[in-house]
C-alpha cells in the first residue's frame, strides 16, 4: 500500500516535470468513506455562549404566582387563554418522541408516553376534565422556543431547562423537575467525567443547554460538541463509535443507558437543570393557571405517582417534587 502511494507520488512528480496534468487522476483515487453514516442533521457545533451566564432576569426559576387553586374544568373567564383552548376542544403540546421515559413513542403501540407526557395530560385534564383532550406535536430541541413564539403550540413539555436567555422569548412555569447534567460513556472506556474528554467528540441535542455547556468546558483543548436532532441519535452515534460520550441531563442519560447496558453514567453533575413548561409571554394568566395545577400535583401526591411510574426504576432513587419559587 505504502509502496504504491510512493510510486504514485513519483509518477505524479515525473509527469509534472514533463508538463503533464495528472492531478485529476491522482485525486480520483481517494478512499471512499466506509461504515454507517452519521444521523441526519448531525454536525460539529462550536462558538456557543456558555448557558446560565445571563443573570438579567434575576432568579430564572421564579415564575408567576398562581391566584389560588385552579378553577373547575371549563369554568374560565372570557378572554383568557384557557377559555380559548377550551373552545378549541384540545390542548396543543410540543413534546419529544425520543427521550426514554420522558417523552417517547412506545414501539408496540405507536402511542407517546412518559413523565413529560403525563404532566401535559394533567394540564389537559385541568382544562377539559379529560386528560386525552390533547394533540401532541413532536419538536426537536431547537424547535421548542420558535414553536411557542409562533403560537404553533400552547405549551412545551420537553425536558426544557429554565434560564434567562430563553425567558426573553418564552414564559416558564415553576420548576416541575430538577435534573443535573452528567456524562454517558461506554463501559471500560476510561473516561470518568467531562474533564477527561478534552478534544474528544461529545454528543448532545442542538439547541439544548447541554451542548452549549459541553463546548464551554475549559479543558485544553475543549471537548468537540456534536449536535444532533434527537437524543437517541446520540446513542446511535455512541454505538457506531462516531462519538466518545454523550453529555446531558441525568434523566435523559438514564433513559439512554436503559437501552444499552454496555454504557455507564460517570462524573459529578456539571450543573443543575431545572425543567419548566414553556408557554407564550402574551398570556400570563395561562402561566398562573399552569402553576396552580402544578401546585396541586405537588401536594396531592400525583407528582410522586407519575415519578414512580416512569422514573423511579430508571434513576434508582425515590424523589419528591422540587419546591416552586415565585415572583409577583
Amino acid at each position: 500500500m505504502k509502496r504504491t502511494k510512493v510510486a504514485a507520488l513519483l509518477a505524479a512528480v515525473a509527469m509534472a516535470a514533463v508538463g503533464c496534468t495528472s492531478a485529476d487522476e491522482v485525486g480520483d483515487r481517494r478512499e471512499a468513506p466506509v461504515g454507517p453514516p452519521m444521523p441526519k442533521g448531525a454536525a460539529e457545533v462550536s462558538d456557543l455562549p456558555a448557558p446560565g451566564t445571563d443573570k438579567s432576569c434575576g432568579e430564572p426559576t421564579a415564575s408567576l404566582r398562581p391566584d389560588g387553586p385552579p378553577p373547575p374544568p371549563g369554568d374560565f373567564a372570557t378572554n383568557t387563554a384557557m377559555q380559548r383552548i377550551h373552545a378549541r376542544g384540545k390542548l396543543i403540546v410540543g413534546v419529544d418522541q425520543n427521550t426514554y421515559q420522558f417523552g417517547y413513542r412506545d414501539p408496540s403501540t405507536g402511542q407517546l408516553q412518559g413523565f413529560d407526557i403525563d404532566m401535559a395530560k394533567e394540564i389537559a385534564k385541568a382544562i377539559f376534565g379529560d386528560p386525552e383532550a390533547i394533540q401532541f406535536k413532536v419538536l426537536t430541541s431547537a424547535q421548542r422556543v420558535p414553536a411557542v413564539k409562533n403560537g404553533d403550540v400552547d405549551l412545551v413539555v420537553e425536558t426544557m431547562t429554565i434560564n434567562c436567555e430563553r425567558r426573553e422569548d418564552v414564559e416558564f412555569s415553576s420548576v416541575y423537575y430538577l435534573a443535573g447534567q452528567r456524562v454517558l460513556v461506554k463501559e471500560k472506556s476510561g473516561f470518568d467525567g467531562i474533564r477527561s474528554l478534552a478534544g474528544k467528540k461529545v454528543c448532545a441535542a442542538k439547541g439544548s443547554t447541554s451542548i452549549a455547556r459541553i463546548v464551554n468546558v475549559d479543558t485544553d483543548p475543549r471537548p468537540v460538541g456534536i449536535g444532533v436532532d434527537g437524543w437517541t441519535d446520540c446513542l446511535v452515534m455512541l454505538q457506531q463509535n462516531q462519538v466518545d460520550a454523550v453529555s446531558t441531563d441525568d434523566t435523559i442519560l438514564a433513559g439512554l443507558r436503559a437501552q444499552d447496558p454496555f454504557t455507564e453514567v460517570v462524573g459529578e453533575p456539571l450543573a443543575n437543570e431545572p425543567y419548566g413548561m414553556a408557554m407564550s409571554k402574551e398570556s400570563p394568566e395561562f402561566t398562573r393557571f399552569v402553576n396552580a395545577v402544578l401546585e396541586q400535583l405537588r401536594t396531592s401526591g400525583r407528582w410522586t405517582q407519575i415519578y414512580n411510574l416512569w422514573l423511579r426504576d430508571l434513576l434508582e432513587t425515590p424523589a419528591s417534587p422540587p419546591p416552586a419559587t415565585y415572583r409577583p
Binding site: 453514516p37 418522541q97 437501552q259
Partner: peptide, 23 residues
C-alpha cells in the same frame, strides 16, 4: 431494537431512511 420496545430503534430507522434518500 423495536422488538425490545427501545426507542433507539426509531433513530436507526431514521438513519437508514436518510441514507437511502441521500445516497
Amino acid at each position: 431494537n423495536n422488538r425490545q420496545k427501545l426507542p433507539v430503534g426509531a433513530a436507526y430507522q431514521r438513519a437508514a431512511s436518510n441514507l437511502m434518500r441521500e445516497e
